[in-house]
Structures are given as structure tokens and as C-alpha cells.
Design a protein around this nucleic acid. Structure first.
Lengths: 336, 336
DNA sequence: CTGTTAGCGCGTTCAA
DNA sequence: TTGAACGCGCTAACAG
């Protein structure tokens, strides 16, 4: 059996292609009798409409794009899981693009998508993104667009995040309540929305407990060895902290590595808490106290909002800025 | 600025749309002078051809599909990373589909893709897949298809895997050399290729060391609590093993959980080794000995082979069955 | 309720 | 070297 199209179905059924098309799309202007006939044959022959023809005609692709910095990260993987779930229900397809934290790559990807390949875009911006013209251009072009987790506040599109500031505040307080006097904050780039918010939460907690003078922020990056070097310095210095709050899971891992190396005992000598969506954090030595973001929910909610835009529904005010609560799981790494 | 198409470019340049099209595709029958003119304007205006029109015309989509059981698993995430890398270089787009280990879902997805939406498919089959007609139908239809990791041997398409049998043999020998006398094997479904191969490696090692009578296989599943229950039984029974070899990372995690609960000390009372691509396995308590699969390489290689098929290149005999070596990292969980 | 016609935007004829 | 015309497969507009 070779190429199957509407015309072939139509000929077999003694109908016109357009009637077949209408029948398959459940048009109200087709008798239920012929609908049945058409659908039966379509099913029997396993007919699938050519998506390119249909997309071309309707100028919509039935596909959405998810742009993330990396995928080898439980958080983003869980988000994608949520996205796929919602997309599937809508009969949509999901395209994945990785920026590898590269602003240039992010730019290229957005360019590729500016031609109708997708009906909407969800993005978590890369940490090297300081120039947002490509995103603004995307918005202006009318492409449905949603930010999640790592957002850019100056562009007026819906943002779905977790409660970073509040969660960081609480996490810092956990350390304080467990007796920490000097808490260092390991963060990524300060031009990253999540880092800014997490930093505010950290500062607010310090301020509340009159510890602002002990504030110590260390900017880490993507390179593990470089991070370890910075953490080594930190733990060897005379301003040695007794608590570390890591804004990124990776940095908690780096901290654990250095502690092993330097024989710094967690939690006795150093308490650690971190953002992390790794379920195996409970098996760490010692089990890592974690701020778990609602990744799957963020994925689902972002996709919901994106579809509202695609379907030109009215966005409620609270669709435009959604914050979903994280959960703090205290484990041994912050115990007394 | 609204919709941009060949016609608009053509008008501005005083050329016909077909000439513009040819110029952009570097046709030899266009003067290099006009080529430059055309490309300059296209770049300036940020022209991107409509992918649906072009796909419809050329019957190719410039997209490939990756079908995986789940994404919240470092192995598959790393594979996708490799896939995206190669696809990007080829100017291809990557569609992601999750089966959630559901044969039915797998079936539906393959059906969706049977109409030209993608030029090729890469799949790691779900563990509930026992009926392979949908895959065979896909192959017969002429759709470029590649299996990776979890393959189905009876369908004649290229398979890219890691050296499961050999790696399992070695892993089992690690346990034996560290003094284990009773080694249990935690596996998923026996109709899964990887599990079959991993089981053979396990058996071969036992046989070599005359321990086949101690063979003990436990079939686990996707439900963590159920798995823990099975492991609890195992560790409480009078046939209590002194070594566990987990075919799937998840089961090692479940084992650790149960050991904590029952105060079974690893590695003194029980040694553990597992397939795992989790870099944080080094931070476990105790650090987990792991068989690390070359996930990223599997992703890249699979995509390379898929493109060879798409481009109708001749497949060398050793493109059809590729096995890439895993690496065993011994850590404290298997020390004496 | 159904058929006919036209055109989505592109790339490939064929003709000049 | 370029332009005009056609059709990929589908669906929306217009008839009947």
C-alpha cells in the first residue's frame, strides 16, 4: 500500500475530498451516516492526514517548543514531563531545544522558530543571556510565549516560577535555626532571575536575624572543577562558613565533593541546604536537605497558560504571573 | 512587519520567487551576484522559509522523533542530549515522546508519526511492549527507524546499545571478587532486551565461578513501594543475599532505602552494584559502585545511523548492530 | 448535506 | 541565467 490521501479515500467512498475532510474533522454539516462510513474506512486503512499540508493550510503546526538550558538536570526533565503530558492531551507535539547556557544558541533557536514551525514557545533562559532583544522580538512578532523558572521580568509575557524568594528565605532560616552563624550563599549568575530572587530571600532572612554583616555570596558556574576550587578556598579561608545554602543543586554536589576531600564533616562542621529535585538526595552522605521545586506542576501550568494564549483565550491577571510553592525537606545535612 | 515570504523578497529584489528560492538554496544556475543580493536581503529581513510549505513540497520534515519510556532518568536525558547535538548540526528538529512504559501509548505515538511529521524515529521500547507489530509496521512502511538501548531483536533495523552482557558479567565478578557468596539480581521485565542481556552476563559470571546454584533473580517494577517490599522480603528471608546487582538504577535506590530502614550496613553486610548514570552516585551513603552507560555516545551514534538511513547512504555491516562499552566505577558499596 | 474551486508557500518542472 | 506555471495535500469559501 502506497501513499494514502484524502483523494483516495474519497474515490473509494464516492465522495469528494472535502466531504471526507469534513467528516474526519466531525463537521456538523455532514450526516452522521456518512461520517461513520468515512471514519470506518479511514480507520481500516489507517489514514493519517499529512500534517504539513494541513499546517500549511491552517497556518498552525500543532507543535510547541520547549527551550531549556540543559536536560541533564532533574528539574528540567520533570518540567518536560509535565509539558509532554498536557501537550499530548491537546494533540500537540513537543519540540526540544537545548541552549547549553549559551545566549548565541538561544538566539539561533528563536530565529529558527520564527516561521511557523511551532504555535508557541516555552523558555527558561540561559544564564549568559543579558541581551533580550531576541525574546522581545519574539513577543512582538505575536508568537505565543511563556517564561518558566528562569524568566526575564522586563518582557511582558506570562511567567511561571516557583516561590524562590520565600523558599530561600525559609531555607536560610533553617540553617539559622540549626545554629549557623556564618552562612555562605552559592549562586550562579546574578543576571539570572532565579538567582536574584534566591539571593533576596537569603538576604531577607539574614536581615531578619541581624546577620547581614555575615553575608557571603560566591558566584559559581558550569565548570565543576572551578566551582570546587572556589569552595575549597571558601572552606579553607579564615572567614570559613558553618552553613552553605546552594542556589543550584550542582553546587551542593560540588560542596559535598570538597567536604569529602577536605574531611569537613557535614552537618557537624558545616550544614548544607540546596535547591534540588534529585530524589536520590535522600541517599547522600549525609542526606541532603533540599528545596524541591514543583517541576512537574510548573511544566503543566506553563503549558496550560501557553495553550490559553494559543487559543486566544482571555488571560486572567493571575495567569500572567504564577508562582507555585516549593517544598523544603529537612534531612541530616542541616541537623544539629 | 508582517508575514514574510518568497514573493515579498522577490518583489523587493525585482526577481521572481523561483529565482529567490534558488538563490537561497545555492542553486548553481544563479549568478553569484544575484545570490549575494538575495542572501543579503534575506538576512537583513530575517527571512525563514515556511517549513510546512517546504516540507509539503519536498515530502520531508527536517524533524526526527525520539521515543523514550521516561525522561526523568539520567540515562535517557543524556541520550537526548546527544541526539539534539547531532540533529542541530544537521539542521534538524527533535520531537520528544514519552511512553511512560506503556505499550498502548507507544502504539499511539507510532501511529501519529506514520504520516510524514518526521523523517525518522529513534526508540527505546517500553517494558510492557510484548507485541511488536506496530514497530514492524513502521519498519515496513519504510520509515527510517533505529532502536537504542532497549531493542527488539526480531525487527531488522539498526540497534545501538551498550555492552550489557559483558558489563553485567564484570559487575557480577566485582561482587564475587569482593567475597560475595550469594548475589541477587534485581531486574525489570524479562521481555526487555537489556534485562535479558544483563541477566545473561550475571549468569555467565556465576557459572564461571561455579555459583549458578545461588542464582536469585527478583523482578521489580515501576512502583517504588512494591519494589521496597520485595527487597525487604529478600533481605529478611533465610536466603538473604550478601550482594545485590541492580539492573536498573531505581532498584539500587530502593535497595539503599530498605537497607537504611532495616539497618543493613552496606558494604559490610551487603554489597551493591548497579547500572547508573547518576553522577551523584559518588555521594551516596556509601558511594555506589556503578556501571555507567555511554548514554551521550549512544544518543549521538544512534542519530548518526538514523541520518545515514534518512540520507539513504549504504549502511555498513557494523552500523547495523553497534555496541558501545560501559564503564564500571567501583566505589565503597562494593568494598570489602 | 455535499461538491467545486481556490490557494496556503514553496520548489521544481519547462520554457525562454 | 531567469521567469511562469504547476502541484504537494489539505481545508475554507462558495455554490447548489
Amino acid at each position: 500500500m502506497d501513499k494514502l490521501d484524502l483523494k483516495k479515500l474519497a474515490k473509494e467512498l464516492n465522495l469528494s475530498p472535502s466531504s471526507v475532510s469534513r467528516a474526519l474533522r466531525d463537521s456538523h454539516e455532514i450526516s452522521s451516516e456518512t461520517k461513520e462510513r468515512v471514519k470506518a474506512l479511514a480507520a481500516k486503512w489507517g489514514y493519517q492526514p499529512n500534517p504539513h499540508a494541513s499546517s500549511l493550510r491552517q497556518s498552525k503546526s500543532k507543535a510547541i517548543a520547549v527551550i531549556v538550558p540543559e536536560i541533564q538536570n532533574n528539574f528540567f526533565a520533570q518540567v518536560i514531563n509535565g509539558v509532554e503530558e498536557v501537550a499530548k492531551e491537546k494533540g500537540y507535539h513537543v519540540l526540544i531545544y537545548l541552549t547549553h547556557e549559551d545566549n548565541l544558541r538561544e538566539n539561533e533557536i528563536l530565529n529558527l522558530l520564527r516561521n511557523g514551525r511551532v504555535d508557541g514557545i516555552m523558555i527558561s533562559v540561559s544564564n549568559t543571556t543579558t541581551d533580550f532583544e531576541h525574546l522581545e522580538a519574539c513577543r512582538i512578532s505575536g508568537m505565543p510565549l511563556v517564561f518558566f523558572d528562569r524568566v526575564y521580568e522586563n518582557i511582558k509575557v506570562p511567567r511561571i516560577t516557583s516561590d524562590d524568594e520565600e523558599a530561600s528565605f525559609k531555607a536560610t532560616e533553617v540553617l539559622i535555626k540549626r545554629g549557623c552563624k556564618k552562612i555562605a550563599f552559592l549562586t550562579l549568575s546574578d543576571n539570572l532571575s532565579i538567582c536574584k530572587r534566591r539571593n533576596s530571600g537569603y538576604e531577607r532572612a539574614l536581615a531578619k536575624h541581624h546577620m547581614l554583616d555575615m553575608k557571603h555570596t560566591v558566584e559559581c558556574g558550569m565548570d565543576d572543577e572551578l566551582n570546587r576550587e572556589k569552595i575549597r578556598e571558601l572552606l579553607r579561608g579564615d572567614q570559613k562558613p558553618d552553613g552553605i545554602f546552594a542556589a543550584i543543586e550542582k553546587f551542593a554536589v560540588n560542596t559535598y565533593e570538597v567536604c569529602k576531600e577536605l574531611h569537613v564533616v557535614i552537618p557537624t562542621q558545616l550544614k548544607v541546604i540546596s535547591f534540588s529535585n534529585l530524589s536520590a538526595a535522600a541517599l547522600f552522605d549525609p542526606p541532603l536537605s533540599a528545596i524541591v521545586q514543583p517541576a512537574y506542576e510548573i511544566g503543566k501550568k506553563s503549558t496550560d497558560v501557553l495553550f490559553k494564549i494559543i487559543e486566544k483565550k482571555v488571560l486572567l491577571p493571575n495567569d500572567k504571573k504564577i508562582s507555585i510553592s516549593s517544598t523544603i525537606i529537612e534531612r541530616k545535612s542541616t541537623s544539629k
